[in-house]
């Protein structure tokens, strides 16, 4: 069952231009993703494609100057701001990227205890530290004293003790050594196998492919394709969107050919298909309007020429 459905989400920011005029900058446009219980959805895309903003929009922690349209529903009901506030940290948990997301002046044990919503916080924290093989002295440490692996396990602990059903991990693995990355990915698989829905935001496609069930490919603030993980195979002929194919071929173990050009900036988006300026099969038609997301071969794609 779909526990979290994001439909046609658009986010823009009010910004002041050099001439002090207010301007609306579109950073996410008509984005669609769905999270299923027991599944891992990996969200991949270049830096600046709107991955973190999607996570913050789901949690309702976007900055004040953000305008949001579209709908997000949780458990079949629309997520209002009030509902988001009560679900944050209880039903939906965030696992952030680095140790910078921990309060530098609070002992990490206390920070994990603050995430416990019901029952004995100290016992819950000790139990999860033991399960994640964090030594008992760690609870008295400050974030700056943690190694990369310890910091990641501490961040993971906050999500585990909260008992949330939806876990959003925003780039949880950069800068870690392969052993720690593998352990992190196994933790996410465990979440999903216990019935949670996991959204794994990453630009490390290779490791995402090892554990995810589905992959959502982001480009310039929108989803261009949602595909089952098996489609990322061979030279990518099972993939639907030209960008996903190119992304797949650009991986080192494949052809390792980078895609020419670069992702458009939010204040300078093309009027039609956002990928048109870089698309090898673009036609005049592509520049007329942004293609709608459509179902195709057990996946979804935003491309009029996809087959």
């Amino acid at each position: 069952m779909s526990i979290l459905v994001v439909e046609n989400l658009s986010i823009s920011f009010n910004q002041y231009t050099e001439s002090l005029k207010q301007k609306n900058v579109n950073v996410i446009s008509s984005l669609n993703v769905t999270l299923e219980e027991g599944e891992i959805l990996a969200v991949v895309g270049a830096s600046g494609s709107g991955k973190s903003l999607l996570a913050h929009a789901i949690l309702g922690i976007l900055p004040n100057n953000a305008n949001i349209s579209g709908t997000i529903s949780y458990d079949g009901e629309i997520l209002t701001a009030a509902r988001q506030a009560s679900l944050r940290g209880t039903e939906i948990a965030l696992i952030p990227q680095s140790v910078n997301y921990l309060d530098p002046l609070m002992r990490v044990g206390n920070q994990v205890r603050n995430s416990v919503k019901v029952g004995d916080a100290v016992a819950a924290q000790r139990k999860v530290f033991e399960r994640l093989r964090l030594k008992s002295g760690v609870e008295n440490m400050y974030p700056f004293q943690l190694s990369g692996g310890m910091a990641r396990r501490t961040l993971l602990s906050t999500a585990i003790v909260s008992g949330a059903k939806v876990i959003i991990a925003d780039e949880p693995t950069p800068g870690l050594d392969p052993v720690v990355i593998k352990e992190a990915l196994e933790n996410f698989r465990e979440f999903a196998d216990n019935g949670c829905a996991v959204m794994l935001i990453t630009h490390d496609i290779e490791s995402a492919l090892t554990i995810a069930d589905k992959i959502a490919v982001f480009y310039a603030g929108t989803t261009v394709e949602i595909a089952p993980v098996e489609n990322f195979n061979g030279d990518g002929e099972a993939l639907r969107h030209p960008y996903s194919k190119a992304l797949w071929r650009a991986l080192p173990q494949n052809e390792f050919i980078p895609i020419p050009g670069s992702q458009p900036r939010p204040n300078n988006l093309p009027s039609g298909c956002l990928f048109a300026p870089r698309c090898p099969i673009a036609t005049l038609e592509c520049e007329l309007a942004q293609p709608e997301m459509r179902e195709l071969r057990n996946g979804r794609v935003r491309c009029i020429h996809a087959t």
Binding site: I61, T90, D103
Partner: peptide, 29 residues
Amino acid sequence: ASDYVLFARARGERGFLLFWRHGLRNVAL
């Protein structure tokens, strides 16, 4: 505006509790 306050908000903290837990200790010093 820091990352750790963003994360605290993501964990459901807000208002005075948020200030008490994370604001006070970081500005008092």
